[in-house]
Design a binder for these strands. Sequence first.
DNA 1: TTTGGGGTGTCATTTAATTGTCATCCAACT
DNA 2: AGTTGGATGACAATTAAATGACACCCCAAA
Lengths: 240, 240
Amino acid sequence: MGPRILIVEDEEPLTLLLRYNLEAEGYEVDSVSRGDEAEIRLREQLPDIVLLDWMLPGLSGIELCRRIRVRPETERLPVIMLTARGEEGDRIRGLSTGADDYIVKPFSVPELLARVRALLRRTKPGHVATLLRAGDMELDRETHRVRRAGTELHLGPTEFRLLEFLMQSPGRVFSREHLLNAVWGHDVYIDERTVDVHVGRLRKAINLPQLPDPIRTVRGAGYSFDETFARAEATASAGR
Amino acid sequence: MGPRILIVEDEEPLTLLLRYNLEAEGYEVDSVSRGDEAEIRLREQLPDIVLLDWMLPGLSGIELCRRIRVRPETERLPVIMLTARGEEGDRIRGLSTGADDYIVKPFSVPELLARVRALLRRTKPGHVATLLRAGDMELDRETHRVRRAGTELHLGPTEFRLLEFLMQSPGRVFSREHLLNAVWGHDVYIDERTVDVHVGRLRKAINLPQLPDPIRTVRGAGYSFDETFARAEATASAGR
DNA sequence: TTTGGGGTGTCATTTAATTGTCATCCAACT
DNA sequence: AGTTGGATGACAATTAAATGACACCCCAAA
């Protein structure tokens, strides 16, 4: 199974939102609502990463983080701190308690996912693929670069995430709604047709002359990254 | 048997409509009309998914959903909320009570079925077949592709859903009325003869030369996906 | 602070595919 | 042969997607 994540957070709805999204990305999620519970849970089983609320009943997030750093077994356990705006005081202060990263609430879901991925990549290379390849396309999450048949392409941030998301599951068709959730974030109130426009822009950006369009429109359903294309050898130049 | 679904809904006709359609898809359906009854039923037997009306006598859907999330046994039970337009307030609000998805009434039956399938796929992979195969035909719900003896076919959205529905129960004969409900959705005021036309189009799309017609017309009754065909080996090319 | 860029979301417009209905033809059943 | 129900081709209306234009907004450079 995917990497394991422990959420330590006392706001029930937020926990659910996180769980929902993380599980959708293939993580195994466990959650507790109190700091002291978390400490116990951490003795039972070590997750690959911890999402830790700053303010917690039982044992504050800051204190818990310190304790995590003290125990040898958890010394290097990746921790992302969740803080409400205003609580942080300073970025430095957050990191100085020993967290590896921290996010200010309210945050967008895609952003959180990106941070989790980034942190896992840093700490457990191999657990997370940094390079997505499909056909003659390459997308590097780390360097944020996209290449088609060798040539470097320029994509805006949204197009990048859109392509990244589609390439993650080649062949699978996603509805506009699904794409909005996954690429833009849950709470946005954006017109579904906007997805069309971005797909259009993405296409314009990645379709060099002579090359086939890797993005498939499925009328009445949504869009997908063409899996036939994905499976095809990148024979464009090196006619192997 | 198929996955079990518990419907918690006080509008009798809606319950029947749901039951009828879900059973046609191979689910085992159980239903109660009050929130408190539902709680009891959930102690007896856990379904694989719950359809929960927002407004309920006895115990509101929202409250019931909260309670479901609190009990460890049902903590991760997939819940789809049914709300009347206007009641929802906000998508977030719906999801923040802990529902995994929510649908605004009035909804189309095919849409509901799609959501149920999607949720089951997320939570109980393996329980739901994403690929329907019958004879030399393949229909992939995930990629929205249809193949006959290896060749990719092009179907319009309606033909796709029609084929999908028929392939779900090979051999079973469906009346035009039933097909209209299942494929187009209830409330539609469409002429029954229109089904003929679509079956015709579907046939044209899937019947490559030399190959037999998998769709059987039952005079006076309706149409069905031929079960003899379905059981036949896909011997088309590899004459095994 | 002002001034350019990107980069975004929305709209109106254009283009294309899909749909529902009809009239007509055909086959099966009596 | 007559009747009934199904198949089919044509057609117009509808709906969905692609496209181009535009107004913002945010940020960085001047």
